Amino acid sequence: MGTLSAHPSFAHPGKTARNPARRRRPFRAVLLLLLALVLLIPASAGAYLFNLGRIFDSETTKIENAFPDEATRPQPSFPGGAAGGAPGAGPAAAGGSPSDSGRSLNILVMGSDSRGATTEEATSGAGSNQRADTLMLVHIPADRSKIYSISLMRDLWVGIPDHGHAKINAALAFGGVPLMVQTVESLFGQRIDHIAMIDFEGFVGLTDALGGVQVDVPAPFVSYHDQIAFPAGPNTLDGKHALEFVRERYAFADGDYQRVRNQQAFVKALLARNLSADTLLNPLKVHNVVSAMAPFISVDGGLDAATIAGLAVELKDVRPRDMVMFTLPTRGTGTSTDGQSIVLTDPVAIEALSAAMAADTLGDYVAANGLEGGN
């Protein structure tokens, strides 16, 4: 079994010094979802919730202007897949959605490549130098039996409202979080109920707080920049090496596609670690996990500890096997008219996926397309 340790003496032959600037471009967004999942734990861990909630609410950053103008948005889903309510009316007018209970939910999880910009710039709604390096649309059905996570390729060529066509990750740079939400809502015709962002330091801290995470590497590879070897089979990764694992793309023939698959594999492994008895029955470890993550998290105002606690109760029976992760089907890669390397959307797949989300039948879509184990 390959083991990558956080011990100071750990080294790899040929490994070069890390470039601090480059380390600002990791897989960040996925872990924002994972913070929520840290709290989505069985009722047996309920004694921890008060303290975890206090840490979450006091240490996370709240995105004050997370959503676009209500008149531009799809209506929220209701039981049975129906939508209702006039634009701007009722609780949704505040930016988010009506009560989350009893209906399907969509959570946009993102991570950004700061490129010298700050989270405050992205969350202000103004343009900045940030890019959404990783995007995941998380769909939780009304019956709370599963969690579906749909990865969106960062180079997906889409229409960005009032900015023409561009790579989807540019929306954050053009108009901050509200424009990114509007772009994803326009792509799928589905309302985003909550938003979460994470900084890479939280990703490293969470992994180390758990004492490392074991990931089954399907085929051996060596990371392009730091020449770190990842042997085939189970690898126990500390935070820094996990970060290298999920951000690597140059070592693979299909680049970002394999990187996304690695990200998904790591999320599943991390979720399993979070829900293990070793974690849940150790109050100090649970406290350390949340404490390590919270300072590096930004969420919309509605995604507070009370909301997460409610989801914890509703999702108390969900286990790692109930989390389905796949990548939005595409038509492969291409080149834009201005010479950029892009990922081409598959309108047929998007339409079918959107219809399944609206009808709260995403499980049927997944089964019909053989996506239970990813793609």
Score class of each variant (00 low, 15 high):
residue 3 T to M: 03
residue 108 L to M: 13
residue 185 E to G: 05
residue 94 A to L: 12
residue 17 A to H: 06
residue 147 I to G: 07
residue 173 A to W: 01
residue 274 N to T: 01
residue 335 T to A: 11
residue 211 G to N: 13
residue 35 L to H: 13
residue 351 E to R: 13
residue 71 A to N: 12
residue 362 L to W: 04
residue 65 N to Q: 04
residue 251 A to N: 11
residue 104 S to N: 12
residue 181 V to D: 00
residue 6 A to G: 13
residue 59 E to W: 03
residue 297 I to M: 13
residue 279 T to W: 07
residue 46 G to M: 04
residue 37 L to C: 14
residue 43 A to S: 08
residue 237 L to T: 05
residue 6 A to S: 15
residue 145 S to L: 07
residue 232 A to T: 10
residue 367 A to V: 09
residue 34 L to C: 05
residue 203 F to C: 13
residue 98 P to N: 05
residue 271 L to I: 14
residue 72 T to L: 15
residue 150 I to E: 00
residue 115 R to N: 14
residue 47 A to Y: 04
residue 253 A to S: 15
residue 344 L to N: 11
residue 174 F to P: 00
residue 221 F to D: 10
residue 55 I to Q: 14
residue 187 L to R: 05
residue 131 R to S: 13
residue 116 G to M: 02
residue 175 G to T: 00
residue 311 L to M: 14
residue 347 P to W: 12
residue 30 V to L: 15
residue 65 N to R: 00
residue 271 L to D: 10
residue 266 F to P: 03
residue 160 I to V: 15
residue 266 F to K: 07
residue 168 I to N: 07
residue 199 D to I: 01
residue 311 L to G: 06
residue 256 D to M: 09
residue 358 A to F: 09
residue 124 S to Q: 01
residue 107 I to V: 15
residue 246 V to Q: 09
residue 229 A to F: 09
residue 83 A to H: 11
residue 26 P to W: 06
residue 269 A to F: 11
residue 19 N to K: 10
residue 179 L to W: 00
residue 348 V to Y: 08
residue 354 S to I: 00
residue 234 P to W: 02
residue 118 T to I: 04
residue 198 I to W: 01
residue 374 G to A: 09
residue 160 I to P: 00
residue 63 I to F: 00
residue 282 N to Y: 12
residue 151 S to C: 09
residue 109 V to S: 15
residue 47 A to T: 02
residue 217 V to Q: 08
residue 246 V to I: 07
residue 28 R to D: 13
residue 231 P to V: 03
residue 345 T to E: 15
residue 120 E to Q: 11
residue 44 S to I: 02
residue 59 E to N: 03
residue 297 I to W: 03
residue 220 P to K: 01
residue 21 A to M: 08
residue 320 P to H: 01
residue 343 V to T: 15
residue 263 Q to N: 10
residue 157 W to L: 07
residue 31 L to F: 12
residue 129 N to H: 14
residue 218 P to C: 02
residue 6 A to L: 08
residue 91 P to D: 13
residue 332 G to R: 05
residue 105 L to A: 06
residue 334 G to V: 10
residue 264 Q to K: 02
residue 115 R to K: 12
residue 70 E to C: 11
residue 332 G to I: 01
residue 92 A to L: 06
residue 32 L to T: 08
residue 9 S to T: 14
residue 292 A to D: 05
residue 144 R to C: 04
residue 331 R to K: 11
residue 173 A to F: 03
residue 304 D to K: 09
residue 122 A to C: 02
residue 335 T to P: 08
residue 36 A to I: 01
residue 159 G to Y: 05
residue 290 V to G: 03
residue 186 S to W: 04
residue 163 H to E: 04
residue 172 L to C: 11
residue 367 A to P: 03
